[in-house]
Design a protein around this nucleic acid. Structure first.
Lengths: 355, 355
DNA sequence: TTGTACGCGTTATCAA
DNA sequence: TTGATAACGCGTACAA
């Protein structure tokens, strides 16, 4: 008993709103191919137990009818939305786009789509992730730093049971898969580079203390100095907030010192650009008078003058891998182990021999 | 006859996958409030004809049960996904994030969610918008430049009947609402500024010819020169591609000229940064030797040294308004008229008196 | 290897 | 102002 929907008495007033042609459904395809809807379903879900010939008939019918599975129906029946969220609170556009690009790369060719979830700060996200996820029907969430280190958010995710993965986390309390980079070792490599150029007074502009990466980079800085037998001078450590403006202020502070540093390591590129701005304003030259190094290798690093020596952080790669881990979790409920991706020291024009 | 779902014989093997608690449904709320599901539906859709008292009872029950409407079911039954796409092919992270921020601002508090749709170029998008929209079940799409000027894409959108809005379009053939800015007038304002500083040899680095904005800005440049009785010298017009690298090359070309310009207008900030890089490398000073101006007021403009004099383009505002126009189209089928948003000349350190 | 029948949680129709 | 009931299009047991 065919249900005979799709008769001539089509287009209820509410339905005829816009679409000129009714989209064909799984039933249409089944009828056209002379099979049941279950078989069509099997074909479109790559399930086994379909004869190649049958499969072809179905595919042909689908093509002829320009059939595309209805996402909403799939979601409802299958209890999954094929929607994943990317949550971040990072203020740097370069970073954000890298993040998105990486996630999207992994989703390429999959049925999953990406919803971007920007937050002003951890407080704005805290306690709301679950509600947002439910309101949007998310199947899972990728948490970028520093959100992924926010205790309240992590606790909430653990409690509500929604699959999630973290990018470059540094805090614990989570059973979620994650992809990270060794910020400490990377910073050490940068310090080694500076010391190799003859620098002995190396300053640091520290990152936003709420980002765990700030601590890791500071650790690397200290370890680097110690390894080379250099003293850690308190006046050469100035606070920052990972923003251009904070780097600019930090630069001015350092330039006002009685005995200036010969090199400044800014904990990210945005701050390094700010530092350089302050140096230029003071009429000094980079790297002639002072060398400057950043961290991230974001777009800004190759756009300022001189271009920044920095650490290339594989943000895209991390986002891609984290998304992959999330998919594995959602689809097979399997947790891929903690991954550490390699960094790269990129030497450009902003660092040179010590004066 | 209550259907008695939600009995004790819960958790089919496939269902029990993750969630510890079954989410309550509209039926649960209806039962708890002693009304029919239709009434609950009315309340949650702000439909009329519900007694205030009844409404309250429903709301109370919903709160008690932590009820949230199921997105998939809503989409299926209502034939709308509450999902809109933001399609762009812009390579500048600053621009992209502004775009997203603006769109999300408008979506704040609405039921709609945003799907980002980046494309490598117009060719990658051409002919696929409809398929993507269907595959993701989009209710509508916001097209950013230069995608919104791609003839094939526009034609496709017009043909398939999916609601869409355009940001700063310059091509025709579309009935969609759009929000724009007067690039020509803005460029004129910039030229006026330079002429006011005494410049007479003003060069232009043109934008990517596939972006219609490039032509508008060039027009403004010509109009500005003419208005001040200045000649348009062909050797002072060099091509560019809206990228940092193309600006850098253009800068070198202009510096190699027998008689150098005293000011360079780059058709966007990225190229202006490239031009400044070339000037610095040549050992010249900005603006002492040459003034440089950009267009967009993207993040890069306030991060290079000296900071760029530029045109503040209200990208966020345009994205917000375009998204609003799209919502109006989707919800009320009403096309809001073409909007033109104001620009702003931002004078910073990169322009100064002619030498 | 294939099909039947039911359920997913809403919105929409139409009657009350 | 309300409610019963039929779609919406597909996944999934279970039967064949």
């Amino acid at each position: 008993m065919a249900k005979d929907r799709r008769g001539e008495q089509e287009r209820g007033p509410a339905l005829a709103r816009r679409q000129t042609t009714r989209h064909s459904t799984i039933t249409d395809v089944a009828d056209a191919a002379g099979v049941s809807i279950k078989t069509v379903s099997r074909v479109f879900n790559d399930e086994p137990n379909v004869r190649p010939l049958t499969r072809e008939r179905v595919l042909k019918a689908a093509t002829d009818l320009d059939y595309h599975p209805n996402v909403a129906a799939r979601s409802l029946a299958g209890r999954r939305s094929f929607l994943i969220g990317l949550a971040y609170e990072n203020p740097s556009p370069n970073y954000v786009v890298d993040l998105q690009t990486g996630a999207l790369e992994r989703l390429q060719g999959e049925r999953y789509r990406l919803l971007v979830l920007p937050f002003d700060d951890a407080a704005a996200a805290s306690g709301k992730m679950q509600a947002i996820a439910r309101a949007s029907g998310l199947d899972g969430v990728v948490l970028a730093p520093p959100l992924c280190d926010d205790a309240a958010t992590v606790a909430e995710m653990e409690a509500c049971g929604l699959p999630y993965a973290r990018i470059a986390p540094t805090s614990g309390g989570s059973h979620a898969p994650d992809v990270a980079m060794d910020d400490r070792a990377a910073t050490r490599a940068l310090i080694d580079h500076l010391v190799g150029l003859g620098h002995k007074r190396i300053a640091i502009v520290r990152g936003d203390p709420t980002h765990a990466s700030a601590a890791a980079r500071y650790d690397g800085y200290c370890a680097g100095l110690e390894a080379h037998g250099l003293a850690i001078a308190p006046e050469l450590e100035v606070p920052g907030a990972y923003t251009f403006a904070s780097g600019y202020e930090a630069g001015k502070t350092l330039l006002a010192l009685g005995q200036r540093p010969t090199a400044i390591f800014a904990s990210n590129d945005d701050m390094a650009a700010g530092v350089m701005n302050a140096i230029h304003e003071a009429g000094l030259k980079v790297p002639g008078d002072i060398s400057v190094a950043g961290f991230d290798d974001s777009n800004i690093a190759s756009v300022v003058w001189p271009r920044l020596t920095t650490i290339h952080q594989p943000i895209r790669d991390m986002a891609r891998e984290a998304t992959g881990a999330l998919l594995a979790l959602i689809e097979h409920e399997e947790t891929v182990p903690h991954q550490v991706l390699p960094f790269q020291l990129v030497v450009r024009g902003s660092t040179g021999p010590a004066a």
